[in-house]
């Protein structure tokens, strides 16, 4: 009887320790997850920022200005364009 008692008591102690340990591990993992999610949000913001920057730099007015003034390019006129007709690939 006593032996069984001791066995059960040890089992209980081990179980409790395991519970504490797993709880701790869970929290550590959760903190890591939180950090990763924050990093994700930060990167998302950065991505938005970069997209905005791209839109800003790719503005038609800037491009037209640079093309005409710096690169001395001219607009395409239909009279100087060759139009080719290519048969459309038939879709399978």
């Amino acid at each position: 009887m006593t032996r069984l008692d001791i066995f059960v008591a040890v089992l209980l102690i081990l179980g409790s320790l395991a519970l504490v340990d797993s709880q701790h591990k869970h929290r550590r993992a959760f903190i890591e997850l939180e950090r990763a999610q924050q990093a994700e949000a930060r990167l998302q913001v950065e991505w938005n920022q970069l997209q905005l920057e791209q839109s800003r730099l790719a503005k038609a007015s800037l491009i037209a200005e640079a093309a005409e003034r710096d690169l001395k390019m001219q607009g395409v006129e239909p009279a100087r364009t060759l139009y080719l007709s290519v048969p459309l690939p038939s879709k399978p």
Binding site: L82, Y83, L84, S85, V86, P87, L88
Partner: peptide, 25 residues
């Protein structure tokens, strides 16, 4: 390259001929 590809130098490119199936595109 343009002159070579055009129907004839100085000729009028007829859009009627050029408007092929690309029109939908």
């Amino acid at each position: 390259a343009r002159a070579g590809a055009a129907p004839a130098p100085g000729a009028q490119a007829s859009p009627a001929r050029l408007q092929g199936p690309t029109k939908g595109q």
